[in-house]
Design a protein around this nucleic acid. Structure first.
Length: 434
DNA sequence: TCTGGGGTCCTAGGACCC
DNA sequence: TCTGGGGTCCTAGGACCC
């Protein structure tokens, strides 16, 4: 039995937690570069603003709706997320933090009224963090997800589901006739694992609602679709196929990619950006105690600018030996960049991905390639670099090819509407006035 | 003028092996 | 007429998630 705790419109709720004036208003949080909406308040959703809707279109389409747009403040969201998960963890003995705003909590052996307990935890998160949540409880993770959807819809859209399922919904506690009614009222596309493609195919096959989906034969589903879809169907039927993973597995690839604040035409601008991305990616790599065997670098123009000549290219640069040394990773990324760069284009985006990751504690011995002095000193050097940057702030110590303060870094992302780092920066602490 | 970022898993097909 | 059987590894592409 699982309980899924999921923050409502999470990024918007984080912003509202510190700015109550945003309550009851259409609010969107924008992606990097203030590009498009990645979180919307209920009021914004009601206007018809879609996920991924470009901000300049929103502005044009709803000039008088008073839509408030904020730049993404991931530092704030990450911190509030940690606090929310810590409270949700009180639901049961094991927790899987599934995303920034969701956690699965194992409640299988809790001898209590799960719905009451769910409401208690929900209230606590609301009071202590200021984030409204939905709690969904079910026999499998897929059912807990579905229950969460019901809990939120019943709260937000009166009439969609019975009112007593709002905010906290335990599907496994429903009498079977009530459960069937709920499942029949839910579109297949709401199921975790049924994306747009599969949902359309299911609809073509006459499976429009979740009740019908739960009645499919798993073996047939596997033949017609795949083992993935089969697992989802089994989970809907109450057979647990997706276990809880309380310990986060280390990443198999690590990426840092960004759209630029303004188009970049000069090679040197790309060098700065790629250096920065390789640096960030290397920091993440060391944080999970891995090394990379390969570095992938890519650049491309904007596919939205039809009037521009288009160019998109990427390349994989293998490392001589797996490394977590920022200098080596930057050097490889820049070698790749030199190979793919072509002058005469307006580049809109670049990225660095670290591939072929392995545990840094595993050493593959090699004949004739014993570690040099530099190799042995790398961990200490990198640990010092990380310690200084953690102590004095990101980028306090950096590689010169990232560009100096005085150089123009036109590729840097635009964030014109960002709120302060209220909870992680002493200087940004909100002040209470009497 | 203006359009995000970061991941995972599965499958089919090709190359290659004996 | 008629051309084996069994296996691994890698990659690209598709689909999904938040």
């Amino acid at each position: 039995m699982y309980a899924l705790v999921d923050g409502n419109n999470f990024y918007v709720s984080c912003e509202r937690s510190f700015r109550p004036s945003l309550l009851n208003r259409p609010v969107v949080v924008l992606s990097n570069n203030d590009g498009c909406a990645i979180a919307r308040s209920n009021e914004a959703k009601a206007l018809g603003i879609r996920m991924g809707h470009p901000w300049f279109q929103i502005r044009d389409e709803w000039p008088d709706a008073g839509v408030i747009a904020l730049s993404a403040n991931f530092t704030l969201y990450g911190d509030l997320s940690n606090r929310m998960h810590a409270i949700a963890a009180g639901l049961g003995p094991h927790q899987e933090i599934y995303s920034i705003d969701e956690s699965f909590n194992d409640v299988a052996h809790m001898h209590c009224d799960l719905v009451r307990r769910g409401h208690a935890v929900r209230e606590r998160i609301l009071q202590w963090i200021g984030i409204p949540c939905g709690v969904g409880i079910g026999a499998t993770k897929t059912l807990a997800k579905l229950a969460n959807h019901v809990a939120k819809s019943a709260d937000r859209k009166p009439g969609s589901y019975p009112k007593d399922l709002a905010r906290v919904c335990n599907l496994s506690a429903l009498p079977s006739s009530d459960l069937d009614a709920v499942l029949a009222a839910t579109d297949v596309s709401e199921v975790w694992g049924f994306g747009p493609r599969i949902s359309a195919q299911l609809r073509d096959a006459g499976i429009a609602n979740v009740l019908q989906a739960t009645r499919m034969d798993p073996a047939t589903v596997r033949r017609r679709w795949s083992v993935v879809v089969e697992r989802t169907v089994r989970e809907l039927q109450g057979q647990s196929c997706i276990p809880l993973s309380p310990v986060a597995a280390s990443k198999k690839e690590i990426a840092c990619t960004r759209s630029f604040g303004a188009p970049v035409t000069e090679f040197n601008g790309l060098v700065q950006a790629v250096t920065e991305f390789a640096t960030r990616a290397s920091e993440k790599l060391r944080a999970q105690e891995s090394r990379a065997g390969q570095v992938y670098v890519f650049i491309h123009t904007s596919p939205f600018r039809k009037q521009d000549k288009q160019y998109s290219q990427g390349t994989v640069v293998p490392l001589l030996r797996p490394s977590a040394n920022t200098a080596e990773i930057i050097a490889s990324a820049l070698r790749g960049l030199r190979a793919i760069f072509r002058p005469g284009y307006r580049f809109a985006k670049a990225g660095v991905m670290l591939l072929d990751l392995q545990d840094s504690h595993v050493e593959q011995g090699e004949l004739g390639l014993e570690p040099t002095h530099e190799d042995r000193s790398t961990p200490a050097l990198m640990a010092t670099l990380d310690a200084i940057n953690n102590r004095y702030g990101k980028g306090s110590l950096r590689f010169a090819s990232a560009g100096t303060q005085r150089q123009i870094r036109s590729w840097e992302m635009k964030q014109e509407r960002r709120t302060p780092h209220y909870t992680t920066d002493w200087a940004a602490l909100p002040v209470a006035r009497a």
